[in-house]
Computed example of a mutant assay.
Amino acid sequence: MTVAVGETVYNEGKAPCSGLGLTWSDDDLDAAMKGPVVAILFDDVGKADIEDILTGLAETEFEQEGLRRVLADPDDIEDWRIGEAIAETYLTDHRDCYFPWPDGRDERKRGSSLPGADLVGLHNDGQGNCLAFGEVKTSSEDKHPPGAMHGRTGLKQQLEDLRDNVSIRDDLVKYLGFRAKGAKWIHLFQQAAQRYLRNNSDVQLYGFLVRDVEPHKNDLRARVKKLAEDCPGGTRIELLALYLPKGRIEGIGKAAVAARAGGAS
């Protein structure tokens, strides 16, 4: 099942940097939350791998209970994590991206925030695979653009850093490379890495806003224009703003946990 592509409400810019505003209906969001978004949010694939490794070792009921505890879903999820899961699912389904190593697997404790790009993976641009890095912000602020665009940790600065700072990109290449050894997707990484070694600006960058306010092109307009200026040759940037129905962001994490546990949606 793929998530809805959404209805386009505005377009901004052109290569090397473009912006797109999209809307989802309640039905679109509900369908996504019941399927692929929740699967990514709770890392069902990763947990299945752990279960496969450990099941044979849990021989007693006490040990089996311990395994169930280790693999249990969290009892609380921040709303912004839903935004990241929506962004990852959308880019996978509609931008031919592949993010093989979920960010959450690198947390040393639940709720921690890790440095680096929110999304690190690969994108097939029709000429093969290249590296893809994405930053995601979730905001209900009724302001265009929202405050999440600005500041040291805002989307503006994060995308500029990915565009301009080779050392940041190099670290992300190593991050993915460490995890590629022995993986089924190593050939995809090798193809993308070869392109990067030829031109360290040959990357696809995504900025993704998840909102639940009225759509407005000012969310992306200025940033699209600025990111296109002096953009290194080979770098492609796309900004997307996905507008959910009004009021759906607050509490969406708790709703996902409740639905997963079989409670009210």
Rank of each mutant, 00 (worst) to 15 (best):
F99T: 05
Y206V: 02
Q157E: 07
S167A: 12
P232R: 10
W101A: 10
D52F: 12
L162Y: 00
T55G: 01
E141C: 05
D106Y: 13
A148M: 03
C17W: 04
V224T: 04
D164I: 01
K143A: 14
C97T: 00
G234Y: 05
F133C: 02
D27S: 13
F133Q: 03
S112A: 15
V9F: 03
N11M: 09
A261G: 14
W101P: 02
K174Y: 14
E63R: 14
I53R: 13
G66M: 07
Y98V: 09
V37T: 00
Q204L: 07
A4E: 14
M33E: 09
V203F: 07
G263C: 09
G19V: 01
G134C: 11
A72H: 09
K254R: 15
E238L: 09
G263S: 13
A85F: 06
N200S: 07
G46N: 05
R223K: 08
D103Y: 04
D230T: 07
G126I: 12
D103R: 07
A117Y: 02
L159M: 08
T60M: 12
A192H: 03
Y98D: 08
S112F: 10
A193V: 07
D164E: 09
L220W: 01
Y206T: 05
L22H: 08
T153W: 08
Q191T: 07
R95I: 03
E59A: 11
T8E: 15
E63T: 14
G263T: 09
